[in-house]
Simulated assay, not measured.
Amino acid sequence: MTDGAPEEDDVTTALLARHLHHRRSGFIDELVVAARSVLPPAKRPSGDEVTTEDATGALRLVPDVRRDLDRAEVALIESVLDRGWTWEQLGVAYGDRSKQAMQQHYRRRGGKRTWPAGERPPRVTPEESPHRLTSGELDPADVAAVHAAIAALLSTAHDVAEEHTVDGAWVAFDPDGDLVEQFATIGLDALPRLEVACRTAAEAITGMVQAGWNRRDPGREARRLRSWTERLRDENRDLASWLDRVPDGLLLPRVDRPLVVGQRRRVHPDSVEIGPDDVDRVRASIAQALARMEQHQSTTDQIVEELRRRQAELGDA
């Protein structure tokens, strides 16, 4: 070995230690602590830096830890099945696995028990479950609206994908890349379209489900609306949805700049110019926005009054 060899070994060890330090997790830290605990006090490394000796010592513990985890997993699976769950139910809760995949997983971990079908309660079908709506409780019109909204979402996603491809490949958004360059390539026009389509589909599904539960329990909605937080959430959601649906043709002013009647529609640094033919349409759009905001304000005022009553009920204390 040359005189330079020990120095090179030190450099390699330092690089490896830094690599291990950056990849550390709480579990690795526990293994390192356990590995150090079996060493004589004089040989235990000082400081928090993970050395190559720490890594190899921790590795020696991994097989025992893996066996302990397998035994714990088997015990938990058996506990769940002993309480009446089926393999199908366990598979869904354990990563959306099939019955066969769940059974194979149990066997690979060392499980040997079986559960006769007679020992389990009968399987509840979706139609019989109290936690699921039946097809008869769903309004066909609501179901059709969900189908239409999902179809529109898929169509919008397809159109966006067709419009934003380079050499036949979808231009994906990379959060670690150059954002300015990506937005210049993809453009921002597609983002509102996708957001509105997603929100419309979500609202259709929510409306269908809520209507179904209300048919099963007519008093459910009244009980829910006794909560001011639910009423405020509904109102804010409706207001945001209304703003999304306002078409550009209404020419709703959205920035705090004076409106001036001019030759054509233009946005200036200190004003918004409106063409003479658009004045009536702008007036109508402002009137609609005011009516909707007054409705929103009415709901908010009711909630404020309710909270003040609750505050008064507690007294000055």
Rank of each mutant, 00 (worst) to 15 (best):
R113L: 05
D82W: 01
T114W: 11
D139W: 00
K99W: 07
A117H: 08
V124E: 06
R107I: 06
E78W: 03
V80S: 00
D70C: 12
T134G: 12
D142Y: 00
G136H: 09
P140L: 03
D70P: 00
G84F: 06
R132Y: 11
R83T: 09
E128V: 07
D82M: 03
V74F: 09
V143D: 01
P140V: 02
A93E: 10
G110H: 08
G118R: 13
S129R: 10
K99F: 04
D139F: 01
E119P: 00
I77W: 12
A141N: 08
Q103T: 10
V92K: 08
V92N: 07
S135F: 11
T125F: 05
G110W: 04
D139G: 03
P130V: 00
E128H: 01
D139K: 07
Q100S: 15
L90W: 08
P116N: 12
L138T: 14
E88W: 10
Q103I: 14
Q100G: 13
A101H: 11
H131V: 05
V74C: 10
A101V: 04
R83G: 06
P121C: 09
R83F: 03
S129T: 08
T125K: 04
Y106A: 07
E78P: 01
I150L: 14
A144D: 12
Q89V: 05
G111K: 00
A117F: 04
T125L: 10
